[in-house]
Structures are given as structure tokens and as C-alpha cells.
């Protein structure tokens, strides 16, 4: 456990009678590129909500850098470097990408509580926001209201907002959701190119992408972890074929 940046012990969560998290224990080592897969309703997004504090677990613990963060509010976890993106665009429609990312940078630097100084006084933060947008390929689209961006650009902004917090653990909830297959490869190439200081757990349905970019795969079924292993082990696992890959073929 000493090498884990993010881990859970026996996480439990129920919605009424429905068990959405069943005894979940995972360990994410430094620099990880882990994929989280499973059929719809397996509890993947719920797990991300539990990890980031957007849902409170009924039982179990979450550790970040070996500190128990189970009861820490979401914004505090972000300050410690545990950051997520959303499957459905969760952006700021009527402000520009430059303003949105500048806001994130200001939050990180503790400048966002300042009300007596105008934004132009924060040149360093604005420049950093611009560089972040440029690095992800949005350098030409910083000034329009976010709602006017193309869908694929909005997906990139979703990630840019997370990157601007300078995370060291990044949880990507279907970053390529809704993006055409060809472009999702590009998007994942950009993700794979991120610094190895950032440990990544991503949810993805496209198996080509998963097997290409994940160093290890966690398979979830009805709220619990079915199996965890290297891509080769997972693709050879019979149970995985039955409940996930198999059923996908039938469907």
C-alpha cells in the first residue's frame, strides 16, 4: 500500500435496496493508467462520486496519499490533487474558456476569494490558463462563450478545467463520450501524453482504446469488482467475456 496514491478499503453504498458499491477496495499506484470498465449500471460513475466526495459512502474508507479523506468535502480533495471530469459536459456555458480556466487557476492559487482587485491584475494566472488551453489544443477558441464551442472542443475543455487544478490523481469519466471513434483515439493520445506524475483512472467503453492505453484494468459488475488485472489477463478472463465482453457482443 505504500506506493498507492489513491486507495479504498471496503467502500459500501446503497440507494434504497440497490447496492451500487459492494466492498470496493482498489489501489492506484503513482503514475498509473488504469481503466475502469463494466456494463451500464455497474457502478463506475458512482465509484468516482464516492472517491471525489460527491457521494458519502455508507461504509469503508478512501485514502489519498495514505491520508484518510473519507469525510473530506469535494473541494478540499481537489486542493489535495484528487480531481475528476464528468461524463456529461459540466461546464460554464456563458463564460469563455479563458475565463473558466482562469477561475480554476485562481482557485488553486487561493486568489479567487479576492474581491478588491480586478482580474487584469492577475496576469500570471491568465497566462497560465491560456497555456493550459493551448496545450490541449484549444488555443484558438479561448474567447467565445463556452456554449458556442463544438462538442469535441467542449470535451477538451472538460479536461482542461481538471488539468488547471494541477492534479496528481485524475479520474476521467468517459472523456471521449459522444466523440466519434477516430477522434477519441486523438483525445486519448493527448491524455496518455500527460506527465507520469499524474496517476489516471479512466472509464471507457471502447475496448480498443482501453486495451491500448490502460496499463491495468478493473472490471465492475453490479456494484462490485469482478476482477482486476493486466490487459492480457482481462482479455483472457472467461468471466469478463461472459458478463461484459460477451453480453456486448450479444447486444
Amino acid at each position: 500500500m505504500s506506493t498507492s496514491v489513491l486507495s479504498t478499503r471496503n467502500l459500501q453504498k446503497k440507494f434504497g435496496q440497490l447496492v451500487v458499491a459492494r466492498d470496493i477496495s482498489i489501489d492506484l499506484p503513482k503514475g498509473a493508467r488504469y481503466a475502469l470498465i463494466g456494463p451500464n449500471g455497474a457502478g463506475k460513475t458512482t465509484l468516482i462520486n464516492l472517491l471525489t466526495g460527491m457521494l458519502a459512502p455508507d461504509g469503508g474508507q478512501v485514502f489519498l496519499d495514505e491520508a484518510d479523506i473519507t469525510t473530506l468535502p469535494p473541494s478540499e480533495r481537489v486542493k489535495r490533487g484528487l480531481v475528476r471530469t464528468f461524463q456529461i459536459n459540466t461546464l460554464f456555458p456563458n463564460i469563455s474558456p479563458l475565463e473558466a480556466v482562469t477561475l480554476v487557476v485562481c482557485e488553486r492559487k487561493g486568489e479567487a476569494g479576492t474581491w478588491w482587485r480586478g482580474l487584469p491584475g492577475y496576469g500570471a494566472s491568465i497566462e497560465e490558463a491560456y497555456e493550459t488551453l493551448k496545450s490541449i489544443g484549444l488555443g484558438d477558441h479561448v474567447d467565445r462563450p463556452t456554449r458556442q464551442l463544438a462538442y469535441g472542443q467542449q470535451r477538451l475543455l472538460e479536461i482542461a478545467l481538471a488539468l488547471a487544478t494541477k492534479p496528481h490523481v485524475l479520474l476521467l469519466d468517459e472523456p471521449a463520450a459522444g466523440v466519434p471513434k477516430g477522434e477519441s483515439q486523438e483525445l486519448f493520445t493527448a491524455i496518455a501524453g500527460l506527465s507520469s506524475d499524474i496517476s489516471i483512472l479512466f472509464i471507457e467503453h471502447d475496448m480498443d482504446v482501453v486495451f491500448r492505453f490502460a496499463s491495468r484494468i478493473i472490471v465492475m459488475v453490479s456494484g462490485g469488482i469482478l476482477v482486476e488485472g493486466a490487459p492480457a489477463e482481462i482479455s483472457a478472463d472467461k468471466r469478463v467475456h461472459e458478463v461484459y465482453l460477451g453480453s456486448a457482443h450479444h447486444a
Binding site: T52, G53, M54, P73, P74, S75, V78, K79, V83, R84, F86, T90, L91, F92, P93, N94, I95, E99, A100, T102, L103, V104, C106, E107, R108, E111, A112, G113, T114, W115, W116, R117, G118, L119, Y122, S125, L161, A162, A164, T165
Partner: peptide, 28 residues
Amino acid sequence: RIINSPFGLSLRGMRENARRMPAIGAPS
């Protein structure tokens, strides 16, 4: 001045998407 400050920008952030704010580390 308040509106044009970083604090004002964070207010607009809450208006635009209250759900995203904690995910970028903002104490809403």
C-alpha cells in the same frame, strides 16, 4: 470592482454551474 475581480468570476462560475464548482476546488 467586485464583479470584475476573481471573486466575481467565481460567482459567475456558481451561476453557470454550481455542480462543477466543488470539482475545481471552489468552496461554494
